[in-house]
Computed example of a mutant assay.
Amino acid sequence: MVHGGDIYRNCISLDYSVNINPLGIPASVEAALREAVSLCSRYPDIRQEKLKAAIAEMDKVAADEILCGNGASELFPAILHALKPKKILIPVPSFYGYEWAAGTEACEVSYFPLREQDNFVLGEDFIEALDKETELIYLANPNNPTGQLIPPEILKGILKRCQELDIIVVVDECFLPFCEEAELYEEMEAGMKCRNLIQVRAFTKTFAIPGVRLGYLICRNREVCQKITRQLPEWNLSVFAQMAGCAAAKETEFIGESRKLIKEQRSILTKELISLGFRVYPSRADYILFYTELPLYELLLKKQILIRNCENYRGLSKGYYRIAVRGQAENERLISALREVTEK
Rank of each mutant, 00 (worst) to 15 (best):
D64K: 05
T204A: 11
E133V: 02
K260Q: 14
I66A: 03
E340Y: 06
V2C: 02
L334R: 01
Q226F: 04
L273N: 05
Q163Y: 04
Q163K: 15
I255S: 09
S13P: 00
S41D: 12
L155F: 15
F178L: 08
A78W: 07
V325C: 00
L334V: 04
R213T: 06
E343F: 06
L269C: 12
E173Q: 14
A102W: 00
L114I: 06
G191H: 13
Y98K: 01
E30D: 13
L130G: 07
E180M: 13
Q304I: 00
L276W: 11
M1I: 09
S283M: 10
R259L: 08
L89I: 04
I274C: 02
L83W: 10
I55T: 01
F112S: 03
K87N: 02
S73L: 12
A247T: 03
P210I: 06
N21G: 05
F254L: 10
E49A: 08
K132M: 03
V325M: 01
T104A: 00
I12C: 02
Q117F: 07
C179L: 07
C219V: 11
S258R: 03
R333H: 01
V61F: 09
P233Q: 09
P142Y: 02
L237N: 04
Q226E: 15
A32I: 01
L338G: 08
E108F: 03
D172R: 11
N236F: 09
S13N: 10
G97C: 06
L294G: 03
T342G: 01
R47Y: 15
Q48G: 10
G71D: 01
K132I: 04
G69T: 01
A248T: 13
N144E: 15
T134P: 10
F112W: 09
Q199E: 14
A190G: 12
F290I: 01
E135A: 02
E187V: 12
L261G: 04
I46P: 06
N221I: 07
R259D: 05
C246H: 03
E124S: 14
T104C: 00
E186N: 11
V2W: 08
D166I: 06
S336P: 00
N19Y: 14
V224Q: 09
S94Y: 05
Q163L: 15
L122A: 03
I255D: 09
E133F: 03
I66K: 00
S275I: 05
E264A: 07
I46R: 15
R115M: 13
P177C: 09
L39R: 14
L83H: 08
F240V: 03
E189S: 11
S17G: 06
E74H: 08
I255K: 14
P77S: 05
F254Q: 05
D118T: 10
N312I: 02
R115S: 14
D172E: 10
A54H: 11
L261A: 07
A329R: 04
T206V: 15
E264W: 07
A78N: 07
I55W: 12
I20N: 11
V170F: 13
V121R: 14
E181V: 09
L299M: 12
Y281M: 03
C246F: 02
I90G: 07
H81E: 07
Y287C: 04
L214T: 12
G123C: 13
L155S: 08
D125R: 15
R308D: 03
F203H: 11
G315L: 04
I198E: 09
L39K: 14
D286F: 04
L237I: 13
